[in-house]
């Protein structure tokens, strides 16, 4: 038996095949953050990858800028149901950061200024699927949206694209990060609507 909402549907929006199930289009850029927005100067910024044997490799802002920079055109999908199509970013592919990293762990935890974390399988970060992004639509990324730099993993729900990212630690298991401990899905594929536990 279906449940129908009497008289609903007059204001419906056009559907778009680029929209995953249960998403609606927005021209806006909403913000989902659990706490205050950290203010991080690029002069103080660094990004560190830590592997299972404790080896650390770090990049300053200048180090990152010396790596090859990609122009990225992508759709983004937030678990709170808005999607933005055709957004433009500039950033450095995670492939470049992982070039000299030796690890046999298959999972990662992204860490952010402010203390937040999110877990992403390593294979979802590599192969041109994710970036450290620092420009949005031709301007430096606003702090509200994760500036100076955020992870960009656009094929997963957008909470996986950790704002204010400052590092990745390798994990043997797919341990849950901050949002994942607080009700959100461990993986977060928007096309399978993996929103919640």
């Amino acid at each position: 038996m279906g449940v129908f909402s009497r008289g609903f549907g007059d204001r419906r929006r056009e559907s778009d095949p680029k929209l995953p199930p249960g998403q609606y289009l927005t021209e806006d850029f909403p913000v989902l953050s659990a706490g205050p927005t950290p203010r991080v100067d690029t002069a103080d910024w660094s990004f560190t990858i830590v592997t299972e044997d404790g080896t650390k490799k770090s990049w300053s802002w200048a180090d990152m800028m010396a790596l090859p920079i990609d122009e990225i055109g992508t759709d983004i999908h937030c678990v709170t149901r808005w999607s933005k199509l055709g957004t433009h970013w500039r950033g450095v592919s995670l492939d470049h950061f992982f070039t000299d990293i030796s690890t046999s762990d298959q999972y990662t935890m992204a860490h952010s200024y402010g203390g937040y974390t999110t877990n992403v399988p390593l294979e979802d970060l590599l192969g041109g699927k994710s970036w450290i992004a620092f420009e949005f639509e031709g301007a430096p990324l606003d702090p509200e949206h994760g500036g100076p730099a955020r992870l960009l993993v656009p094929h997963l729900y957008f909470w996986k694209s950790a704002k204010w990212v400052n590092g990745i630690t390798m994990h043997a298991n797919d341990d849950p990060g901050f949002w994942e401990q607080n009700g959100y899905n461990l993986y977060g594929d928007p096309w399978k609507e993996q929103r919640y536990w």
């Binding site: 927005t26 806006d28 850029f29 909403p30 913000v31 989902l32 953050s33 659990a34 706490g35 205050p36 927005t37 950290p38 402010g114 203390g115 606003d142 509200e144 949206h145």
Partner: peptide, 25 residues
């Protein structure tokens, strides 16, 4: 954004400020 920024400036621990936002910037 405005309120959380003021709270941090006043010395509140950012980890003790829980926020929920709606709409864009």
């Amino acid at each position: 954004e405005a309120v959380a920024g003021i709270l941090v400036d006043l010395g509140h621990d950012p980890m003790r400020i829980k926020t929920e936002r709606f709409g864009g910037v």
